[in-house]
Computed example of a mutant assay.
Amino acid sequence: MILATTKVEDVSHFLDVFSTKGADKRAEHGSKGSTVFRDPNEADRVWVLFDWDEAGWAAFVSDPDVPPILKEAGHVGKPQAAQPAGTYRA
């Protein structure tokens, strides 16, 4: 699992691109799915939980076809993966 966050210009437009062109490109790199969350404190920030391994994420973010898709989706800056801080039993 990968948890990533990014700021976007317009969440609805982001979701349109994320769920189509973005999904196709992520699938090419092994993503098995994702869940998007809106940040409760920042209207222009989304969090995405990906069913994806680190190698697939790394291949995706280095793919030269990805920056134009991110631009079309309205990203403000680059998506950032969150670093795990621990795993617990409950």
Rank of each mutant, 00 (worst) to 15 (best):
M1R: 11
I2V: 08
I2W: 02
T6S: 08
V8N: 10
E9Y: 06
D10K: 09
D10A: 08
V11H: 06
V11L: 11
H13V: 13
H13Q: 14
H13S: 14
L15K: 15
K21C: 05
K21D: 14
K21L: 13
G22C: 07
G22I: 07
A23W: 00
A23E: 06
A23N: 02
K25T: 09
K25F: 11
K25W: 10
R26G: 00
R26I: 00
A27K: 15
A27S: 14
A27D: 11
E28F: 11
H29K: 12
H29E: 02
G33N: 01
G33P: 03
G33R: 06
G33A: 00
S34I: 00
S34Q: 10
S34L: 03
S34R: 05
T35N: 12
F37Y: 14
F37Q: 01
P40L: 07
P40H: 03
P40A: 08
P40R: 04
P40C: 05
N41W: 00
E42D: 14
E42V: 15
A43E: 11
A43T: 05
D44N: 15
R45S: 04
R45C: 03
R45W: 02
R45I: 02
V46H: 04
V46T: 06
V46L: 03
W47L: 14
W47Q: 07
W47C: 06
W47K: 06
V48I: 14
L49E: 10
L49W: 08
L49T: 02
F50P: 02
D51I: 03
D51T: 05
W52A: 01
W52T: 03
D53C: 04
D53G: 10
D53I: 08
E54F: 01
E54V: 09
E54Q: 13
E54M: 13
A55P: 02
A55G: 01
A55N: 05
A55K: 14
G56T: 03
G56Y: 00
W57A: 10
A59Y: 02
A59M: 01
A59D: 06
F60C: 04
F60R: 01
F60V: 02
F60E: 08
V61S: 00
V61A: 00
D63K: 04
D63C: 02
D63F: 04
P64D: 11
P64V: 03
V66K: 02
V66N: 13
V66A: 14
V66H: 09
P67A: 07
P67Y: 05
I69E: 04
L70N: 11
L70G: 10
L70V: 04
K71C: 06
K71A: 15
E72A: 15
A73E: 06
G74L: 05
H75F: 15
H75W: 13
K78Q: 10
K78F: 11
P79H: 11
P79N: 09
P79D: 12
A81Q: 12
A81Y: 03
A82L: 14
A82H: 06
A82E: 03
A82M: 12
Q83K: 12
Q83H: 08
Q83V: 12
P84Q: 13
P84S: 12
A85M: 14
A85K: 13
G86F: 15
G86E: 10
T87V: 12
T87M: 07
Y88C: 06
Y88E: 05
Y88R: 07
R89D: 15
R89W: 14
R89N: 15
A90Y: 13
